[in-house]
Design a protein around this nucleic acid. Structure first.
Lengths: 222, 222
DNA sequence: AATAAATTAGCACACCCGTGATAGAAAGAC
DNA sequence: GTCTTTCTATCACGGGTGTGCTAATTTATT
């Protein structure tokens, strides 16, 4: 009987407006009124989909986080067996670094989420960061010469774990510099430095025989 | 003739109030009123030292930036010939990473500066970041086995430059993770990972004879 | 056409904001 | 004491904010 609209579609439209407003006015500028104006709606319409500002921000955070994850998974599915491994790894990781306007927007939204979480924690902040650990392990495992198989849960070469952590930290550092000092770390430089660092990952699968991974490996990065 | 107070001292007091407010309420929470309340003053008193909010924020940004630089220089002067080189390097770089409340406050203020700069650019944002390049070069130059001398301006081993950049990116990444995902990157872990990464810096001074640095060295990170 | 539900627009309230302005308090100089 | 300058407190203005609330508008069903 009623007028019916695609609820999810509307909400996604508003997320885009949130993104634009955060980019333009900063985290604090994302008010109900400014977002509504940016989307071309009235505040009442926005508040029909998001009763409170907190809901609005939470949904924007979740949506953008999922968007990045989906994009990376799609890229992997499409290029996994096409590109040579180091280049594939580089291109995957570039999706996490603010190299173009879209990714700069996403990074700015992450910063905004952190800012919003101070007053009203949104929990979306840490999730994405943590979920990436396995990806870095997988990348370094393959880069260091191990076969294309799931990373073993136990008795993993500690140097693989160490370099996975190095790479994780390194990519986050590249992202931060690309965001905050883009003059010193422009996109081309990001791509160059990232590939150079990936080339530093040592070949690990040869020295300890990779066929026998059941023996204990005590020491390492710890 | 008039009542006389230590102007600079007062201004520094307000900076501390700004820091506390930014930590508690976020970048947007640092209003003239909240800062005045935090310092226990009236808004009129605050505005006698800072006519406008922009001045207040600029001074806070400059003060905290200088505070970090001064602290690092003092630490170097005191420990330069006391600690073994890798440990000295680690402790110097730890001053840039939010490992305790003070450094977390500073990092939050840097983020706030970035946030403020969007509306009203403060210029203090990029300065500190750029000034650190020489420090990283010096550290890697020494770490890789070169003598304790100023880093040569020309014909520098390109691998030194590359690893200086790696280290710079790495420390910024450590700082970001220590700030945003402290559960995954607690202080002890920061210290461990930092030292492990410093140990990865290769010995470079031996292979190309360090006595002859005048020969051209074309390739490298590029 | 009538109806009922979903959707939209807009007002109202209390609050916080930056800043201009003004009146008062404090304290060293004469 | 008085004077003079600095310092402090406070109000006022226009504007933005989140959100509760109500009245209108739209539209698929009956």
């Amino acid at each position: 009987m009623p007028k019916v609209v695609d609820h999810e579609q509307r909400r996604r439209e508003i997320v885009d407006a949130v993104l634009r407003v955060v980019v333009r006015d900063g985290a604090a500028g994302a008010s109900v009124r400014t977002v509504a104006a940016e989307a071309g709606w009235s505040t009442g319409a926005v508040r029909h989909y998001f009763a409170t500002q907190r809901e609005l921000r939470e949904f924007a955070a979740r949506t953008v986080t999922e968007r990045v994850g989906t994009r990376i998974r799609a890229y992997i599915a499409e290029h996994e067996f096409v590109l040579p491994l180091p280049e594939l790894a580089a291109r995957i990781l570039e999706h996490l670094i603010p190299l173009d306007d879209q990714r700069r927007e996403e990074y700015q939204l992450w910063l905004a989420i952190g800012e919003w979480s101070r007053q009203n924690d949104l929990e979306e902040s840490a999730r994405m960061w943590a979920e990436q650990r396995d990806m870095y392990l997988q990348i370094v495992y393959r880069l260091s010469g191990y076969p294309n198989e799931p990373v073993p849960a136990e008795n993993l070469d500690p140097r693989v774990a160490a370099w996975a952590e190095y790479l994780h930290v390194f990519v986050d550092g590249l992202a931060a510099q690309a965001m905050f000092v883009p003059d010193d770390m422009p996109p081309e430089r990001v791509r160059t430095v990232l590939r150079a660092f990936l080339a530093e990952v040592p070949s690990l699968a040869d020295e300890p025989p990779p066929a026998d991974r059941s023996r204990p490996v005590g020491d390492g990065a710890g």
